Structure formats: structure tokens, C-alpha cells
Simulated scan of single mutants.
Amino acid sequence: MIISLALTSEITTLTMRMQLRFFLRALTFLYILPFISHAQISNRYGTIVDIGSRSGIPYVSIGIKGKALGTVADSTGKFKLLLDNTVAPSDSVIFMRVGYHTLGKTISELKDSPWAITMEASSVLLNEVSIKASKQTIETYGRTPASIYLTPKAYMRVPRTSDVSGLEQATILDINNQILLKEVDFLLIRNNFANLKYRINLYSVKNDLPDKIIPTKDIIFETSETRGWKKIDLEDYNIVLKNYKKVAVSVQLLDAKLKDDDVNKTLLLVPSYPSPFKKSFFREKSESEWTPLKNTFLYINFQAYKLKD
């Protein structure tokens, strides 16, 4: 009888311990559940409109400051932004487009979808001037056609699940003090897209890196010919660069449509020419850090009129 009671007591104690362990595990799971949910990848949706007209603003660059996360709004101002567990409530979402004041909002300010974003137009653009009488010889700045090119792995292939919009390549060009841009040319090779939409951006240069965007008219174009040299006529934009010794010229991908259902997207956009004295730059999103690619000279150039002082 004593043995039976002792055995019963031991079983009861063991059962209580198991129940306690189960309770503690359940409590722990309930405690970490919000963090697990937070760590999951999630999408945020929204629309960006002009504060005055209330119409959608097309192709606004959207990025998490300092992170390779972001996207580009579509032609109506609508967007879908992918967030992951690296994003904190204090992180800033930057909305940027030429012709508008750059807007920054923290994740905690924006809260849940849908995000309703308003942006205010800016009057700060490069001065348009009458320069027809001052045009002189056309000069070329940058890398012209050649038979040799490099294909850095940094931007060759991106998984199909990735949002490729916002991907940007740049090169730094030495220029004269005052020029009028005539056209910009760049090379596309070996990609898996049926249609591409791009934006040409101009940046000032600081510490040998692209720095602040130079305010010009938005230069956006679309092509279904996804190979070969692309020529963008800039005559109608009337862009005068004055008092710049160097500028960074970039090609930013806004949208892309695949040709087929390949597992990967071939994202070789603008190849480089091997050069020991040059370097090109690459970044995945508009607010991520620029990655220098040494000994490479991106196949981008522009033709310009050198203007009289």
C-alpha cells in the first residue's frame, strides 16, 4: 500500500511537471508570437497624390533609408512596398521624385495599409535659358561603343520574387563648367525582358560617389528593344549643367515585363568596359547605399553642347 501511494505520488508529480512545462511553453509561444508576426515579410500598399490637384504622381521612388528595400510607384501613383524583419518602427520611408519636395515618414507614422501619401510640387529646377545662339561644337562625355565589355555579378541575376523596380546603375563623368545636354546613350545586352521602362537621373558628386539628385525634368522612357544601344534625345528638356566639374549619370529601372517563366530574371542591364582608372556604381533601391564596382566604366555617355561663358 505504501509502495502504491508512493508510485501514485510520483506519477502525480511527473504529470504536474509535464503540465507546467506545457504551460510555460505555451506562455512563451504567446509571448513571442507578436515578434514572429513582426519578423514575417509583409506588403504595404498605397497611393501617392499631388497635394494640390489630388491626382496620382507617377514613378515616385520609394525606399527605406539605408536598406535595400523599396519600389517605384506605377503610372497612377499606386505602389506595393515589401517589408521584412530588418525594418524597425523608427526606420524612415523616403518618397522622392524630381519636381517634388522629398518626403520622409517613419514606419510608425505610416502604420498599416493603405498608405495615403501626399507630395508637394517644387519650383526648384534648373533654370531654362535661351541658348540657341550660344551652341558650339558637340562634345561626348563617357564611354563610347567598343567590342569589349564586363558583366559584374552584382546585377546579373535577381530571383523572380524580387521587386526589380528601383534598381540603379551609375557612372561619374568629367565635364566642362557649362554644357547643354543633347542626348544620352547607353548599352543594353542579354536580358530576359520583353519590355523595360527606365529613368535617367543626374547627381552631383561628393567623396567620389553619386550624392544629391540634380533637379531637372523627369527623363522617363520605355523600350521593347531590350538589346543594343539606346539613344534618348534630350533637346526638348533644355538641361544646362553649370558649375559642375563632375556629374553622376544613372539608369534607373522603373518597370520590367518578363518574356517567359524562367526561374530567374536576368538583370544584366548596362555592361561595363574594363578600365583600371574608372569605377561604376550599383544599388538595388533608391535609398540603399551605392556599391562601387572598381575597374569598370559603365557604357553610358552623353553628347552635349559646350556653352560660352
Score class of each variant (00 low, 15 high):
Y59T: 09
K265Y: 04
T13G: 02
V205S: 04
T216A: 06
Y141M: 12
D208N: 10
L24Y: 13
I232E: 04
K132G: 12
L209I: 08
W115I: 07
N191I: 06
D163S: 07
F79G: 01
E120D: 12
I214C: 07
S75V: 11
P114H: 09
G104L: 11
R160K: 06
E225R: 07
Y237I: 12
L254I: 10
I11G: 00
K308H: 11
T291W: 08
S55V: 10
I189A: 07
D211N: 15
I51A: 14
Y299E: 04
T118L: 09
K65M: 13
E289Q: 13
K153I: 10
K265N: 11
F297W: 06
L81K: 00
G228P: 03
Y59F: 15
I11L: 01
V129F: 11
A121Y: 14
L234A: 05
K197C: 05
G63A: 07
T296W: 02
Y100L: 07
K294W: 06
T15L: 03
R44E: 04
L69H: 02
Q303A: 09
K308C: 09
S113F: 04
S90P: 01
L254T: 03
K111M: 08
T118E: 15
D261Q: 10
R160W: 07
S204H: 08
Y100G: 04
D260Y: 08
K259C: 11
Y45H: 11
A88L: 15
I41Q: 13
I2G: 02
P89V: 06
E10P: 00
L83T: 05
Y155R: 03
K182E: 14
F22I: 13
P274I: 12
T296V: 08
V164D: 01
N301H: 11
L187P: 00
S55Q: 13
S9L: 00
P34A: 14
I2M: 04
N238C: 08
F277E: 14
K231F: 11
K265W: 03
A68K: 05
I51D: 15
L187C: 03
Y149C: 07
F221E: 09
V164G: 00
N177D: 14
F193Q: 01
I117G: 01
K231A: 07
V98N: 10
P145H: 06
L181H: 03
L307G: 02
N207E: 14
V251Y: 00
K231G: 05
K308W: 06
I51Q: 14
M16P: 00
S162H: 10
V247Q: 02
K212V: 15
S147F: 13
L267Y: 03
I300Q: 01
T28C: 13
R54A: 11
P215Y: 09
A26I: 12
G46K: 02
Y273V: 02
N191G: 04
Y141V: 08
I51E: 15
R25I: 09
L5V: 03
Y305I: 02
G99S: 12
L254N: 01
L82W: 06
Q169P: 00
K259D: 10
F221W: 13
